[in-house]
């Protein structure tokens, strides 16, 4: 394993709804960051990104985002990715609402 490689998750937006989603180890797209596959190897990351990008009818704009392990699963490291796990801060809209209903 490459020690200098920062762990990643594959993330994208759903084509139809635009929702932020994460690629899981069992090839689902989850709304929940904790359920993402935490990828710790650069070559594997590129493979998973290609796999995601090929799903043209499911997601848009797949990319690799930095993440770190946490008690409940992967967590984002940058504030932009943290906001993407929730939704806007001015209203209880987006995933923060969808996931509690």
């Amino acid at each position: 394993m490459n020690r200098s490689f920062a762990p990643k998750v594959v993330t994208a937006n759903r084509l139809q709804e635009g929702d932020v989603v994460y690629l899981t180890a069992d090839d689902r797209w989850s709304l929940v960051h904790h359920e993402a596959e935490l990828i710790e190897d650069e070559a594997h990351a590129q493979m998973r990104l290609l796999h995601a990008a090929a799903q043209k009818l499911v997601v848009v704009g797949a990319y690799l985002a930095d993440a770190k392990p946490g008690p409940n699963g992967p967590e984002p490291t940058h504030f932009r990715e943290e906001f993407r796990t929730r939704g806007p801060s001015n209203y209880h809209h987006g995933k923060q609402a969808d996931l509690t209903t």
């Binding site: 504030f79 932009r80 906001f83 806007p88 801060s89 001015n90």
Partner: peptide, 17 residues
Amino acid sequence: GMDYCALATARSIPVAQ
């Protein structure tokens, strides 16, 4: 700002609020 916009580098709305 970063509550909605993909180009944003930081939030604006909560600062205004």
